[in-house]
Nucleic acid binder design. Structure first.
Lengths: 241, 241
DNA sequence: TAGATTGTTAATCGATTAACAATC
DNA sequence: TAGATTGTTAATCGATTAACAATC
């Protein structure tokens, strides 16, 4: 049965079975924790160790590591450093891809400041904006270029990732330019569902969808167990002055 | 069998069956689309209409609306305005809860600028930061207050939601203060898993986890179908000057 | 009436969890 | 050796999709 497994792993990447989305989102949590674990000098780790830290079922942890192609040894556990390394390899964090960020507003600026993205395979090489007041400036050390140049530069520099942080109304047009320029993946922060070709990797980071889930649960919790009413105040902001 | 359904709906909210997370995240998409649909003067809408727009199975749309307590009429469809309204009601967007945002860095500032949050049940009433250079200033019209005051004000103002946008190292301490102050929900943007009491609603917005999923898929896609190599350049930034 | 659409139940699919064998 | 842990298969659970009845 082992031989069957290795056949699976030798399959061409495009036919390899896709790893479940939940697994992909848990792997960075393991990675983060295991870096601490390694730092603490612990050379091996068990699924139970990881599960206890992250409040996850040990079997689930084991399955996730298996999906990432990482194996351990019965009775011993996993070699901490090998898991850290294996996760980085599996997630594609070893070779960094270049990205353009479009929309140097407040969300765009925030993302330009995330230094650790480079450790996760993402290097934002420049930002683009339409606003002449922003063009030519630098934000968190990254140049802000004229939106006009996006199409040409994306193609010439073989940029693979586009990050969209423009208002919803402009997002589709930006996506079209990025796709025409040859990007392979789009990370979309605009609250709109973009139309892109089938093969393109598209991730939506729609905060309103996240918020909806939070507010529904809060509303339900408040209905079950209401908050005591706050004392009446004339104006709330008065408190802050 | 209808009578059974209404019994279900009459159950106490804390015993009502939880609505699936994927459903909660799709409802805002329907809401957004149906506002346009209504704007266009279309008074009724079918699940097929919604499904075509959002590339979703019509049956799934119907189940989602059912979960939100919204019903239609065979052959006719759903009344557009009633669905818009029903989603808002179900998601708790009709009564707005007050929130404090902690950490007036770039991500915090970005969130303070999201005007539409108030239409989604979330009113950020103030921001908090430790940096004296920020305290007393306003960001996107919201006061930035001293972190010292967080505990007292959270309690006195009966704040229900805490938004955490501080660095990972400080996030747990902030969460503890918010919890002690009585918040019922935390929206956490720091890349760390917080420990909070069981009953507390906690949503993690961990961009590194999202990014991991994107980078893994990109790495896999590039392996299957590599990008042509970019022409060699001495320094990349030279292009921008 | 006929046909389109919702309402509702059943089947499928995928992820999680449980059980247990293999192994160091 | 015995016991802890991985490896692997089976069972469960939940969400999606399909089938079909109800209805306007």
């Amino acid at each position: 049965m082992y031989s069957d497994m290795s056949v699976t792993k030798q399959m061409a990447p495009d036919t390899a079975k896709a790893v479940p989305e939940p697994t992909l989102k848990r792997l960075p949590l393991y990675h983060r924790f295991l870096k601490e674990w390694r730092q603490a000098g612990k050379e091996s780790v068990s699924c139970t160790d990881i599960g206890e830290e992250l409040k996850l079922d040990p079997t689930q942890v084991r399955k996730d590591l298996e999906a990432a192609g990482i194996s351990g040894r019965p009775r011993i556990g996993y070699a901490t450093a090998a898991v850290v390394d294996g996760i980085e390899l599996f997630l594609g964090w070893k070779k960094v891809s270049e990205a353009f960020l479009v929309g140097a507003g407040s969300m765009g600026s925030a993302l330009l400041g995330y230094r650790k993205f480079e450790e996760c395979g993402l290097k934002i090489v420049a930002a683009f904006d339409r606003d002449p007041g922003k063009i030519g400036r630098k934000i968190h050390g990254k140049h802000v270029l004229a939106l006009d140049k996006l199409a040409d530069l994306t193609r010439r520099m073989h940029i693979l990732i586009g990050i969209i942080t423009v208002p919803a109304a402009e997002a589709q047009a930006v996506a079209d330019v990025l796709v025409a320029g040859g990007v392979r993946a789009i990370w979309n922060f605009a609250p709109i569902r973009l139309r892109v070709p089938e093969h393109l990797i598209l991730h939506n980071e729609d905060l309103y969808c996240s918020l909806a889930s939070l507010s529904q649960k809060l509303a339900q919790a408040l209905e079950a167990n209401p908050a005591e009413a706050a004392p009446v105040r004339k104006t709330r902001t008065a408190t802050f002055n």
